[in-house]
Amino acid sequence: MLDFLARLFGREEPSGKQAKERLRLVLVHDRASISPHLLDTLRVDLIEVLSKYVEIDEDALEVNLERDSDAIALVANIPIRRMKPSTATRSVT
């Protein structure tokens, strides 16, 4: 009954939808053989590299694996606060 009320007022997604969303995520990892731990490490490394060039909002940075029908993509959303002044002159290596 509580479930029903919660849903009635739009507070909770139906569990079927939750199942679908959770599965979608877990299968992306299963298929790519990338564990959440690996993704975390990747995130940390990404921040490190990117910080050389730009000042990024680390808390808002999102790194995810996404999938459409059968291709898997690494999708990162990286909010930039500002470019670092020295970027233009810094060597890429």
Partner: peptide, 19 residues
């Protein structure tokens, strides 16, 4: 009846996920 209530993934969901 569970699919209708939203408490079970429907056929479309499962096919979409498994492709």
């Amino acid at each position: 009846e569970m699919v209708r209530r939203g408490d079970m993934m429907d056929i479309k969901d499962v096919i979409e996920i498994l492709a």
